[in-house]
């Protein structure tokens, strides 16, 4: 039995919709349930993927696990720390990467790496050692002194990646890890995620790309309308079908023939 390092227990999150959002979503409802009693667990040394369409609640779940937002009900633990009661401790053992979190354009990757290392309470020596390792692995050295504002999208994604894991976290959470990346950078990222798994780290990622989930994930949770529709290893979930076919079958079962 593997160690469970992330455990979500009946997570629930509701958002109040602004007038503008109600108009955009063409609804009269003032509340929207983003996550509705979601429970799952991820073990040490595995990649767990949250698969679902846009608006299913994947990002909200990851934001709750990384303590950016609090659940309305339920709780989750990361490395044994509650995201509700021990958010500081959770942040120390989690690396979170999402397009929502930006880097200041004025600074260089070199400076930002040191700054965020210090933000996680790392010593200068430890930061320097980590920088040598990650900058070499991701090819950041070539543009380490260039301001973030002058970097290409691919370069920026690499910098965001190395900064999110500067503190060598036990749990790495990625929201749509390969979105917007060129094929070469995407390959570097997927290889690195597999390497993290080999190192005994736990990786939680959200995606709507079936091939990525099939390639990377040990276990997958299918989220539809904030609820866990199906969960298991790829073999358990797919039962001989492709992940894409199985997903649409689950979707049809829940939502009817709306595709």
């Amino acid at each position: 039995m593997k160690d469970i390092v992330v455990r979500a227990d009946s997570l629930h999150k509701t958002f109040t919709l602004s007038r503008r959002q109600r108009k955009l979503e063409k609804t009269g409802e003032t509340k929207k349930v983003a996550v509705d009693g979601l429970s799952f667990s991820a073990c040490r040394g595995e990649i767990y993927g949250l698969l679902g369409p846009n608006g299913a609640g994947k990002t909200t779940t990851l934001r709750m696990l990384s303590t950016l937002i609090k659940p309305d009900a339920g709780d989750a633990s990361v490395m044994g720390h509650s995201v509700v009661k021990e958010s500081g401790k959770v942040r120390d053992c989690v690396g979170f990467m999402t397009s929502e979190l930006k880097l200041e354009k004025f600074f260089t990757p070199d400076y930002l790496f040191q700054f965020f290392g210090a933000m996680h309470g790392m010593s200068k020596d430890k930061i320097a050692e980590r920088k040598r390792d990650l900058f070499t692995r991701f090819g950041v050295n070539a543009f380490a002194g260039v301001k973030v504002g002058d970097l290409s999208t691919g370069m920026l994604q690499k910098v965001s990646l190395v900064i999110s894991i500067v503190h060598d976290p036990d749990v790495v959470i990625f929201d749509e890890p390969t979105n917007g990346l060129d094929v070469l950078t995407a390959k570097v990222v997927t290889d690195f995620l597999m390497e993290l798994r080999a190192m005994g780290k736990s990786v939680l990622l959200s995606t709507h790309i079936f091939s990525l989930a099939e390639k990377l994930c040990d276990r997958v949770g299918v989220i539809i309308d904030g609820k866990m529709a199906a969960e298991g290893t790829l073999e358990e979930l797919c039962g001989g079908f492709s992940l894409e076919d199985r997903f649409f079958s689950i979707y049809r079962d829940l939502k009817g023939d709306v595709l």
């Binding site: 950016l68 979190l101 933000m119």
Partner: peptide, 13 residues
């Protein structure tokens, strides 16, 4: 710009 949120995701108080 979302850069403040990046700091809030660290363990800084």
């Amino acid at each position: 710009r979302g850069t403040l949120a990046t700091v809030l995701v660290t363990s800084a108080r």
